[in-house]
Design a protein around this nucleic acid. Structure first.
Length: 319
DNA sequence: GATTAATGCTAAA
DNA sequence: TTAGCCTTAATCT
């Protein structure tokens, strides 16, 4: 159950290990056989994330689009060029720890027998990637991929000019509660249930506030904070939203100063995972219902909204 | 050993 | 609005 930061890491990983490589594509499970045939034997030019969707552009102008959904996952394996390639997707652990690479020291000798329902398998000369349980996996034309992306809202990890203003415009335009809007991928692409809850807490915003009640300044600062914690998520490989001062353990760097002090796009290897911050210290409200708020001590509340669980502090975020 | 919930969306009804 | 995806970890009997 990745949020946008995981998919951006995935894109980096695909570029690292498969960029420019000729891929054999198949569907051991059989549900993607026709699509696999359209990209089989072609060269992967570029992998790019937009929100929670992954687009793989092949040299012959076809695009493989994957959405992991609730429990989709990719597994990787291969030779030394795959060292550090890990598993990204469905929860291996609370707190979205990605599975550490299991470099058992055995030399690479081709992909293993597919285990379970492998929807798609990509194989290069140096390694392989298996996809299971995706909500979406299809092959599109470049124009078709553009159509899909046009329906997505701005992604704070893409650093595109004008996106901040566009988010503010879309959020403030609707009277729908901001907690619901942050989950709408046409308003904001990449945020899921964890970032939604955490970011509303960090900004001290009542989840039930209608978008129309937010000032442009407030909405813009909300965007900035989302961009900050998600960039941290890219470099950390997990969602850590607490400030150093709010962690009982006192461990780890402060938010905004993630591993390597980078911007989440740079020199940190795609597979690096921040293990400094204990799971129990990583969030303010997500799955902390009944526990005391780290700021005011009020019991964190939980309620179902739009079919998903919402967590917030009634003390810090209003009623 | 069985059941449930999970960072989410798609497609059918 | 509901089923489905089809996995994993945590929580039950």
């Amino acid at each position: 159950m990745p949020e946008g930061h995981s998919v951006h890491r995935l894109a980096r990983q695909f570029n690292d290990v498969f960029g420019g490589a000729l891929l054999a594509v198949s569907s051991p499970q059989g549900k993607f056989t026709a699509g696999a045939a359209r990209v089989d034997g072609q060269v992967l030019e570029l992998a790019e994330a937009h929100g929670k969707q992954l687009f793989m552009f092949f040299r012959h102008e076809l695009v493989m689009r994957v959405h992991l959904g609730l429990y989709g996952a990719w597994d990787f394996g291969g030779d030394a060029t795959f060292a550090g390639a890990s598993s990204i997707g469905a929860p291996r652990r609370i707190g979205e720890q990605e599975l550490a690479p299991d470099d058992g020291g055995t030399p690479y000798s081709g992909p293993p027998e597919p285990k379970g329902a492998v929807r798609a398998r990509l194989v290069s000369a140096h390694g392989w990637a298996d996809l299971r349980g995706p909500a979406a996996c299809e092959v599109l034309t470049v124009a078709g991929a553009a159509t899909v992306r046009a329906k997505l809202g701005p992604d704070p990890l893409l650093n595109r000019p004008g996106d901040r203003a566009e988010f503010v415009r879309r959020l403030c335009q609707s009277a729908t509660p901001i907690a619901l809007q942050l989950m709408k991928q046409e308003v904001l692409a990449g945020v899921g249930n964890v970032y939604r809850a955490e970011v509303l807490f960090r900004r001290g915003l009542d989840p039930r506030l209608p978008g129309t009640s937010l000032g442009a300044g407030e909405a813009g600062e909300l965007w900035d904070d989302i961009a900050l914690v998600m960039a941290d998520g890219v470099s950390d490989g997990r969602i850590i939203t607490t400030e150093l001062a709010d962690r009982p353990s006192g461990r780890g760097a402060g938010a905004g100063h993630a591993l390597g002090g980078g911007d989440g796009q740079g020199d940190v290897p795609a597979s690096t995972i921040n293990k400094d911050v204990p799971v129990a210290d990583a969030h303010y409200v997500y799955k902390r219902n009944g526990l005391p708020c780290r700021h005011c001590g009020t019991a964190v509340a939980m309620a179902e909204l739009g079919g998903r669980k919402l967590y917030w502090c009634p003390g810090c975020q209003g009623g």
